[in-house]
Write a protein that binds this DNA or RNA. Structure first.
Length: 497
RNA sequence: GUGGCUGUAGUUCAGUUUGGUUAGAGCAUCGGUUUGUGGUACCGAGUGUCGUGGGUUCGAGUCCCAUCAGCCACCCCA
């Protein structure tokens, strides 16, 4: 049998794991810096916990786990003709568990289940794999890690601002230039409402908006006729959207006077309550961001990202800027989002990346716990895609050199006597906190031992033969420079510390 | 769920157009040059049901059909 692993899954070798841990550690440190504490939940959840939370598409992509035992025997479905079988019904008969699809829904379940032990607002982070039965492709895996931070039990928009800070901080530490986009579901709902379109058709509108940068916007919107929209609805949409695209420009001198936001406000004023509410929210977030970051903010706004314009203070160095985009076309995120929505993308204008998928996303969900029996608890969170971040860091060559070396010192010996002499010394080195090891096969040739050090990128080798044992001076070789000196074990410890 | 591309050694690929004896190369691995010195150099070695099944043919890695797997794009998403 030829060994292999399922499509869309990967093995991680030591070098990759060291690098992955660098990402996890960076994210974890920032989460903790902002007061989030870790939890973990099981890889599998009950089927009904997951089903119906991610939309129709999501349900299809959930990995189902087959019941153990003779499920045909246990199934209550009685001898239906094969053609008449409803696969959904049948699935629920033979499968009661599924692999988690994201970390947010299991978290909501956790919160409801442990509500009496939890102090609200509850800030948790969670770094675990999730599974999706999607067709794998570039940047898309069937098993991948999400790194989530959520605040539940607080309506304050300060949470949103803190999450923006976290996104900025994480990517700043990782040296990835990004644009943080945010929008509000209520604004989208408002636009749809004003056009007299029912909410469940919102996805068609968003698809059309998405096409604006590919094809003529008139054509994109006129195509909506085929989806069952009437001319009046389409004209209203055009009216609203074109106004937002053509008449406004961001004004960063005073974010609270953001012309784009004002235009939105005017559109919704006394016409759409939900839309107005969305504008108030996004404006409030902008205001607090302005308070925190001042003229470091480089704000873009509009339907599709326009030229950055002079909307930032030229005295602020590029690396200090935080690139934000009030992107009204942003609708990403799962079905359960009700307010703010976030998405982070690599800023291709500041690096040569080919990566177009989002590397972080999130939003506010007002009633996810309600489904599990705890209503009126609002939560907001973000999720970093560790695997995609890995791909970006790899592509841009941004992994620090030091993360690939872990062992600092290797003892090379010529036989059992030397090995026995070294073992206590090795223990001493380790006690000093220096990662070190000894080549286990005492009779191995020197070349073999040296190659081992070389392969593992171990920077120092202590060579011990009879000379060294006699006078207590070990030969310490610097593997990078090739230099070799004689030193006592204590001096070596001091050098490597 | 829809569409496109690709399956040959551990790995990356050549060979397929135009069927012809024993299927090649780089890298990696292992051994040696060198029994106290790695990363360089030189020498040597091993490895393949040519994805699988069937068909055409005197003859198939090569042509035809089916099937499986992988990659990429759409949809959607981290």
């Amino acid at each position: 049998m030829k060994p292999s692993i399922p499509k869309g899954t990967r093995d991680f070798s030591p070098q990759e794991m060291v690098r992955r841990n660098y990402i996890f550690d960076t994210i974890k440190q920032v989460f903790q810096l902002y007061g989030f504490l870790p939890i973990e939940t099981p890889a599998m959840e009950n089927m009904e916990t997951l089903m119906g939370k991610y939309g129709e598409e999501g349900d299809r992509l959930i990995f189902k786990i087959l019941n153990s035992g003779d499920y045909l025997e246990k199934s209550k479905i009685q001898s239906p003709k094969f053609e008449e079988l409803d696969y959904k019904k049948f699935t629920s008969e033979i499968s009661e568990k599924a692999l988690r699809y994201d970390l947010t829904v299991p978290f909501a379940r956790y919160v409801v289940q442990h509500q009496n032990e939890i102090t609200f607002p509850f800030k948790r982070y969670q770094i675990q794999p999730v599974w999706r039965a999607d067709r794998p492709q570039k940047g898309r895996y069937r098993e991948f890690y999400q790194c989530d931070a959520d605040v539940i039990g607080s309506n304050s928009l300060v949470n949103e601002v803190e999450l923006v800070q976290i996104m900025d901080e994480v990517f700043r530490r990782l040296n990835i230039p990004v644009i943080i986009k945010f929008n509000n579901r209520k604004i989208l709902n408002g636009i749809v409402e004003l056009a007299g379109i029912s909410l469940d058709k919102i996805n068609f509108i968003l698809e059309a908006i998405d096409e604006f940068d590919k094809i003529n916007r008139d054509i994109a919107l006129d195509k909506l006729i085929d989806k069952g929209f009437n001319e009046e609805q389409i004209n209203k949409l055009k009216n609203i959207l074109y106004q937002l695209m053509d008449d406004v420009h961001p004004n960063m001198d005073d974010l609270t006077e953001n012309v784009f936001i004002k235009a939105l406000d005017k559109i919704f004023y006394q016409k759409s309550e939900i839309g107005s509410k969305g504008v108030i929210e996004i404006n409030e977030i902008n205001k607090v961001l302005k308070l925190l970051f001042g003229n470091r903010i480089h704000m873009m706004s509009g339907l599709i990202s326009k030229e950055p314009s002079q909307s930032y203070n030229i005295n602020v160095k590029q690396e200090d800027r935080i690139y934000l985009h009030n992107d009204i076309s942003l609708a990403r995120g799962l079905n359960y989002y009700t307010g703010s929505i976030f998405e982070v993308k690599v800023d291709k204008s500041r690096c040569k990346s080919e990566f177009t998928s989002s590397i972080c996303g999130g939003g506010r969900y007002d009633d996810l716990t309600g489904i599990f029996g705890l209503p009126n608890v609002s939560g907001v969170g973000i999720s970093f895609g560790a695997d995609r971040i890995y791909d970006v860091l790899n592509e841009l060559n941004l992994f620090p050199e030091s993360v690939s070396a872990s062992t600092k010192l290797l003892f090379v010996t010529f036989g059992e006597t030397e090995q026995n002499y070294c073992l206590p010394l090795l223990a001493k080195v380790r006690k000093a906190g220096i990662n070190s090891e000894i080549y286990p096969d005492a009779k191995a040739k020197m070349k073999k031992q040296m190659s081992y050090a070389d392969d593992k990128k171990i920077p120092f080798v202590a060579i011990v033969g009879s000379d060294e044992m006699n006078n207590g001076l070990l030969s310490l070789k610097n593997m990078t420079s090739g230099e070799q000196t004689k030193a006592t074990i204590d001096t070596i410890i001091e050098t490597l510390k």
